[in-house]
């Protein structure tokens, strides 16, 4: 791994914030893992590979809504960025089928909606 220099940090600061590509984030802190986030993460990673979908599966920390873990945040082009809660294996597959493939939001599992500036 190369060392980070001051110049490199300057460059990062100057660059416009990169447009995020399509991604799915799974909350993987203690609260999420205790509620079953690892299985969700595994399911998503495997299914995405199997179906050859171009979406990055990432992990992240706790966003705070611990009572509805496991949380899965989805951001794909042309759709609002939403957070699904109480996600299990089945809901995870539903997210891939409906949200990612058919561009149709999944009922009854959305707990948070981020309105992207581009939409406004």
């Amino acid at each position: 791994m190369s060392k980070i220099t001051k110049e490199e940090l300057d460059n990062i600061a100057k660059q416009p914030k990169k447009e995020d590509k399509d991604w799915i984030k799974v909350g993987m802190s203690s609260c999420g893992i205790a509620a079953g986030a690892e299985e969700v993460f595994k399911t998503l990673t495997e299914e995405v590979k199997k179906r050859n979908i171009q979406v990055a599966i990432k992990k992240c920390g706790c966003v705070g809504m611990c009572s509805v873990e496991p949380l899965v945040e989805v951001n794909v082009e042309g759709m609002p960025q939403v957070t699904y809660g109480k996600v299990d294996k089945d809901v995870a597959i539903q997210i891939l089928d409906d949200h990612i493939h058919n561009h149709r939001l999944v009922n009854d599992h959305i707990y948070d909606i981020q309105v992207k500036k581009a939409d406004g």
């Binding site: 600061a13 909350g27 992990k59 992240c60 920390g61 705070g64």
Partner: peptide
Amino acid sequence: LRNCGVVDPDNIDDYLARDGYQSIK
């Protein structure tokens, strides 16, 4: 909690992309 639930906690590049280590600089 600005980065909690946003960055991958194991990935330093995620943090760098969100003004990481700009403060120490």
